Amino acid sequence: MFPEIFETRPIRIWLDNGLEWIVINWGDQFEAVAMPLLWLLNGIEAGLLATPWWVIIGFFTVLAYLATRRWPLPTVVLVSMLFLGVMGLWEDAIKTMALMIAATVTAIVFSIPLGIALARSLLMRKIVTPVLDLMQTMPSFVYLIPTVMIFGPGKIPALLATIVYAAPPLVRLTDLGIRLVDPQIMEASQAFGANPRQRLFGIQIPLALPTILAGINQTTMMALAMVVIASMIGAGGLGYQVLQGIGRLEVSRGILAGLGIVVLAIVFDRITQAFGKQLQAHIGVDVERS
């Protein structure tokens, strides 16, 4: 046994009391700040549920065709989406999709500017990188504890936990994409008199878009990976069906809901990857011509 150097109980008590103090004195303020996230999630969910099923399936099928200009991927998307409806998973799949979209949109809003800031500041990268490491390696159940204490079980802590878990890849890949832009292109733009803002929005971001889109793809997949855990605190959707399958020992319920999550992952992963490859090929041609 490792020898006990000092008593850790006072530290745990201090942490617990500190969090309780935050909940008592700042809980309402935290809820007010997080309320727009709940409105976003509820709005997306209500909009998707109000949309006819055939419109949603048609939208994703057309989107898949635009991404590839070939029929194999649209066919896979069509069959996959029909599977959700035929198996009675449509409503739960829509709720899961709403959570994933809300988390991804929020992550995009915060992660891309942060990634750009990291690419432009070595000091900020040194400060933020350990935080990103902590967000990616910390078990999700750990940061579910304070969010549930502050907000209570429901959609807000589920969405926050999903954002925390899913955002780091987009920050890292945005930072990487900006830094990997060819220095010769940057020097040429500077020689033509482009200011830093023009170089960022006219050169760096467009050339880094394939990498950024890969980050969005990873964020989407990680958001979907959180749906089962998020269901434990009231997120609902396909994750809740998996949880019910575990609690009731219903193998069929768990397998079907798990397949539903896999179907959503395939649809979003293949479409975003196809758009990324299309964009990368287009930018590659432009760079060669320039």
Rank of each mutant, 00 (worst) to 15 (best):
S231N: 06
L123E: 10
L114R: 11
R125W: 00
V164Q: 08
G284Y: 03
V109E: 09
T211S: 06
I11V: 14
V62N: 04
I205N: 04
P206Y: 08
F268S: 06
L99Q: 15
E7Q: 13
M35H: 08
M186G: 13
I108K: 07
L38D: 02
I44P: 03
I22C: 05
V23R: 07
V86I: 15
N217G: 12
I212S: 00
L243M: 07
I266V: 15
T219K: 09
M138W: 00
L40Y: 09
P196A: 07
P72I: 11
P196D: 05
M100C: 09
V23S: 02
V109F: 04
F30G: 03
L213P: 01
F59S: 12
N42V: 07
T106A: 12
G47V: 02
I5A: 05
V105K: 09
T61I: 06
A32W: 02
I266L: 14
E7N: 15
P153K: 09
A119S: 10
L78K: 04
G254V: 05
E250V: 04
Y143D: 08
W90S: 04
V142L: 15
V267C: 10
M149H: 02
V33W: 00
Q241A: 07
V148T: 10
M138A: 03
L38P: 00
P168Y: 02
L114C: 14
T162I: 05
E7P: 05
L176R: 11
V287G: 06
R179E: 14
G237Y: 04
V33C: 01
E45W: 01
I185F: 00
R270V: 03
G234E: 03
